[in-house]
Write a protein that binds this DNA or RNA. Sequence first.
DNA 1: CAGTGGTCTAGACCACCAA
DNA 2: TGGTGGTCTAGACCACTGT
Lengths: 265, 265
Amino acid sequence: MGTTGQLAAVPEPKYWHLRTVLLRAIDTEFSTGQVLPNERELSARFGVARATLRQALDQLELEGRLVRRRGIGTLIAAPRVGVPVNRHEEGWPGTARSQAWRTVDCTTAPATARLAKALGIAEGATVHTVRRVRLVQGQNMATESLHVPAAALPHLPGFRAESDRARSVLRQLERLEVDGESRAVELGVAEAEEAALLERPPGSPVLVMTTQYAAAGRLVALAVSTYRADTCKLTFGEAGVVEVTPVGAPVGAATGAAAEVRTAS
Amino acid sequence: MGTTGQLAAVPEPKYWHLRTVLLRAIDTEFSTGQVLPNERELSARFGVARATLRQALDQLELEGRLVRRRGIGTLIAAPRVGVPVNRHEEGWPGTARSQAWRTVDCTTAPATARLAKALGIAEGATVHTVRRVRLVQGQNMATESLHVPAAALPHLPGFRAESDRARSVLRQLERLEVDGESRAVELGVAEAEEAALLERPPGSPVLVMTTQYAAAGRLVALAVSTYRADTCKLTFGEAGVVEVTPVGAPVGAATGAAAEVRTAS
DNA sequence: CAGTGGTCTAGACCACCAA
DNA sequence: TGGTGGTCTAGACCACTGT
């Protein structure tokens, strides 16, 4: 970024060209955690309006390359964290490192039309909903709403305090023999409470993962998880693949490198 | 949207409030394919600058609720298409409905440092790369670069024309007994050629899926796929889950409904 | 051609943070 | 308090679309 940033007259928009220039600078002249010059200076240096510069920064932030902090500055982001979303590794309550999840609250209420349809139950049927937050490296990385029809948990003890009920629901769920899950992943934005739980402003991009858990041919749970898209990379592992040794290196070792192939090559 | 759009003094930004108002209008007063009033009229109606209105529309477009077409207008988007990304259903070359993929080109070249690391092979080793485009309902929904070390395809016939070579690589790949795959999904933006293949402007959000295929303990292929985030919802099915009948409805039937649970309950 | 969204500008003020 | 990013404005011009 030593140049004064000449922006030749090109057919592509200025902000896109700017993004490219900045991206190269990030890759070659900066490292994680460093702060970029402030927006007013950058826009002056490149001879564009601040709004145009910000459009370029918006792109780079969406790509997870920058983090902007009000009052602080614009920093180079750390590479995205690979977050395993396999039930047997992380997702299912109580399994192994389940400390990663922190229960926020738990409600028991009749299903709305929407929820009933998604769970394949009658509208108004009782459903337990556990909201949780997933912590990765001490950071809130995801929120989840876990919906479980009361009918799927026949042995649930009677009324309890909210935190106890949440525990009970999760424990009962563990005992079911879940024999399959089907998932969907799409792009979304964090709204009010969700955004607050993720410690991000409303409108922040998230990866929305919808998981249906089946046991004995029945749909026993529906989880809707929202992962911070800026810092997360969802990884779907298969037990069969991990730990084998390919031509040169273990498959696991290549996992990190694989995601970087797309850029520049 | 009958009101003149009073924007009370609220702690939240105008564009976010606007988004909420527009979202409700979209849900209640418009249907797929309808065109919204133009930006200048909308901004006047809500008493904000056009740039502010556009910020709200940007959000709704990111959520896949709107489609903006230059020269035409802003339309209500169709619900996202669920795209199966299971190897046995769609992903693997030649399997079942493989007509869905159209080969763009095929190159054979020494691996760059980056690619070599991701494939676990030596830098400079020969790698076949097949670029394909995935068609869903006649639309280009994804691009893919499939990297295969030449060493993994010992029986590949000698030199051929490009299109023939692509076919050969895919066919050889089918014959391998792939016994596992591991995936990662993250948010990205479409760059130049990629954007062109997806028929979207540069900078459009995409879901980047990185898949490693293993056979006999070796990493035999690396696929980097970019799916249009505006119109795609990636679905990961499991053979075990589909076609069972839960309490009220088949699991499959609930798949579409599940994704809508997040909004408004 | 007239109408649409896409880009860009120059400036203002606000909310937040560190010192 | 001074500096940062976040929001908002009013206006201009461009690129693309259909008639």
